[in-house]
Simulated assay, not measured.
Amino acid sequence: MSASADVYRVLQVDDEGGQGSSGKRISDLSGPLAQGNFSIFYMSIYQTDFVLVKERRLKQAVQLLQQHDFEFDLESVDQYLGGSPPPMYPSEKDKLSLESDTSLLLEDAFERSVLSDELQCVGLNPHYRSDWAMTVLKILSYPELIKSDEISDGISLIANQHILNLFDSDVIFQDEASQTYRVIQVNLAGSNLDRCGIVWSISHPLAAEAHINLLYLSTYKSANVLVSSEDIGKAEQILTDDFEHFKGMLAELALEPTL
């Protein structure tokens, strides 16, 4: 098992646009952070989004987003951040050196694949808190113990239909026009903990240029892009046609500065 030496802090995104504008939101948020050399994880869920940044750079990230007209709960800022953040950007010399090092790590070392399952993103009713924990535990660790009549609660799930069938319909929060998603998974070389711009480099061509809505799930070694099943062909084609350029963009991504 590999573990990061850094502690991550979570910025919760509050946007009335919901899942319908999630792609634009991901691109808009990740763009300034990529330009500022911040390495982030991005998590789309049913109720909201989460941006994970390293605690040692949290003040800088908040300041940068404020400069790009993103608003923050001022009470939270005062409570958790107080004081003035240090300078946001590494020197040009450091930046060039970091980009060069990253290209050596990424060259010909990742691949793209489209997963076969159709998924849905749903919320779970908090009134069934006593039931969901055991069901989710069984899903993750003991699938052979799952019974079809078990119910769940209190979190968001992105799962295929046979998993959602394990939960009673009363405990699932789901949009009336709920859509199914397909996953385009980009397997990155090694860890992506320190690479800047991955979320933006993947989300921007789809959301901002092709106007394809998406959800995004970062993991330790992969980027998972969820698009509507109806858009999977178009989205895959965009990344396929531009994949060499896309690889080039990833190869040029800077590593996050250590200070």
Rank of each mutant, 00 (worst) to 15 (best):
E236R: 15
A159S: 08
E230T: 09
S156G: 05
L206A: 00
S229V: 10
N224F: 00
G190F: 04
F246W: 07
A210G: 10
K221S: 15
S178Q: 06
D170I: 11
P143A: 10
H245E: 14
A207T: 04
L193A: 12
L206H: 03
S191G: 03
L145W: 15
I184L: 09
T240P: 08
C196H: 06
G233S: 12
S218N: 05
V171G: 05
E144W: 04
L166N: 07
R195G: 04
D153I: 12
D149W: 10
K247R: 13
D194W: 08
A159C: 11
I139V: 13
L215F: 07
A223P: 02
N187M: 09
T240I: 14
L239F: 06
T219M: 05
D194Q: 12
L206F: 02
S141T: 15
S148T: 13
G233M: 09
E150M: 15
N160K: 09
A210Y: 03
F243E: 04
I158C: 10
E144Y: 08
F246R: 01
Q179S: 10
S191H: 09
F246V: 05
S218E: 04
K147D: 11
E244N: 13
S218G: 04
H162A: 12
G154A: 06
L166I: 02
H162R: 15
I212W: 05
I212T: 04
S228Y: 01
V199H: 00
A208E: 05
S148C: 10
V225H: 01
